[in-house]
Simulated scan of single mutants.
Amino acid sequence: MSASLWLAYDHYGYALLAVVGTFAAVSGVYRLAHHPRCAGWLLSWQGVAPPFINILGVLFGLTLAFLANDTWSAHDRAIRAVYREADAMRTTLALSQNVPAPLASQVRGALAQYAQASVDEWGWLAQRTANPAVADRADALLTLIASAGVREALGANVQTLLLDQIVTMRDERDQRVTLSQTHVNPLKWLGMAFLGLLTLLSVAVVHIERPRALLAAVVLFAFGAAPTAAIVLIQGNPFLAPVGVTSAPLQAVLNGLTAR
């Protein structure tokens, strides 16, 4: 696998590691509990009260919940950024309708070039990078809107509104680029994995004298924890297909610009 592909899809690798690692830990705990050399020593630990699981279980659940909240919050912010960017583009188009014909075509063309570059940037966002062409198109559009011709045609007040919309477009684009570069925080996930292991061990200790109950308990814990962690990890980059934010709002604006 090339470095670029791994950079784009490493979240899936971490998700697979979480699932495999969890069930490997389950297998290890169960084998240890039934190992002839360890069984007698481990039985000496029986008597741990079942409510003890709640202490570590709550810590583990809260840690995973916080990580999930960070991930899905980034996804929601990415959606809002894309829609606000598209809305600013529509507003720019509407406010520039009264520009004289030669200049109007330039504004429409510059806006269409920006929209096309933004739509094309989605492949870059999946790899947590930015397309420099988008910034160039935004600068060109800003320079055009700030020109004396636009001020003479629409007046200073409307030109100011247009400039505000261009700045909003740039800000929202910067927001989605920033969100695309969010990544798995190793310390957070190592802490969660450590708490998960401790929770697994506490479940095993509580059921140490009943092998079948021990197996059922640790397997159920694994089926609850591993897929949940994998789902959160897969959502790590809000612009990564197939579950990522799409460019549909920007594509709709682009279609409207090129259809006329």
Score class of each variant (00 low, 15 high):
residue 110 A to L: 06
residue 123 G to N: 07
residue 168 T to Q: 14
residue 220 L to T: 14
residue 79 I to K: 05
residue 136 D to A: 04
residue 224 G to T: 08
residue 93 L to N: 09
residue 244 G to L: 05
residue 231 I to W: 02
residue 206 V to W: 04
residue 256 G to D: 07
residue 205 V to Y: 03
residue 213 A to K: 03
residue 170 R to N: 13
residue 239 F to Q: 04
residue 49 A to R: 06
residue 245 V to Y: 00
residue 139 D to S: 12
residue 97 Q to T: 12
residue 248 A to L: 00
residue 213 A to M: 03
residue 69 N to V: 14
residue 218 V to R: 01
residue 189 W to H: 14
residue 151 R to V: 11
residue 209 E to I: 01
residue 70 D to W: 09
residue 134 V to E: 04
residue 99 V to S: 11
residue 7 L to F: 09
residue 8 A to L: 12
residue 19 V to A: 01
residue 84 R to P: 01
residue 89 M to A: 05
residue 187 L to T: 11
residue 152 E to Y: 15
residue 165 Q to Y: 01
residue 105 S to P: 02
residue 109 G to D: 10
residue 127 Q to H: 15
residue 57 G to I: 03
residue 13 G to P: 09
residue 32 L to H: 14
residue 108 R to H: 12
residue 143 T to G: 14
residue 240 L to M: 15
residue 185 N to M: 09
residue 93 L to T: 07
residue 46 Q to L: 11
residue 76 D to I: 01
residue 83 Y to N: 15
residue 260 R to M: 13
residue 222 A to S: 04
residue 16 L to C: 14
residue 82 V to C: 03
residue 76 D to S: 03
residue 13 G to I: 10
residue 139 D to Y: 05
residue 55 I to L: 12
residue 88 A to M: 04
residue 198 L to F: 01
residue 106 Q to I: 07
residue 28 G to N: 08
residue 65 A to L: 05
residue 64 L to V: 09
residue 182 T to V: 06
residue 31 R to P: 07
residue 40 G to M: 04
residue 33 A to I: 00
residue 68 A to K: 13
residue 110 A to R: 02
residue 4 S to M: 05
residue 242 P to M: 13
residue 166 I to D: 01
residue 117 A to M: 10
residue 101 A to I: 10
residue 115 A to W: 02
residue 115 A to K: 02
residue 187 L to N: 10
residue 146 A to G: 07
residue 48 V to R: 08
residue 257 L to P: 01
residue 48 V to L: 10
residue 228 T to I: 11
residue 249 P to T: 01
residue 155 G to K: 08
residue 148 A to Y: 15
residue 69 N to I: 13
residue 153 A to D: 05
residue 103 L to C: 10
residue 192 M to L: 06
residue 239 F to K: 04
residue 189 W to Q: 14
residue 2 S to N: 03
residue 84 R to F: 03
residue 123 G to Y: 08
residue 251 Q to L: 00
residue 181 Q to P: 01
residue 132 P to H: 11
residue 187 L to M: 11
residue 128 R to K: 11
residue 68 A to D: 09
residue 126 A to D: 08
residue 124 W to E: 00
residue 221 F to V: 10
residue 226 A to Y: 02
residue 24 A to H: 14
residue 223 F to N: 06
residue 86 A to M: 12
residue 162 L to H: 03
residue 81 A to N: 00
residue 185 N to R: 11
residue 65 A to T: 08
residue 202 S to M: 15
residue 256 G to L: 07
residue 54 N to G: 13
residue 28 G to Q: 09
residue 47 G to A: 13
residue 203 V to K: 08
residue 173 R to M: 12
residue 18 A to H: 02
residue 55 I to F: 13
residue 174 D to H: 07
residue 250 L to V: 06
residue 214 L to P: 07
residue 131 N to T: 11
residue 184 V to Y: 09
residue 54 N to F: 13
residue 144 L to I: 12
residue 207 H to E: 06
residue 80 R to L: 07
residue 206 V to P: 02
residue 66 F to K: 08
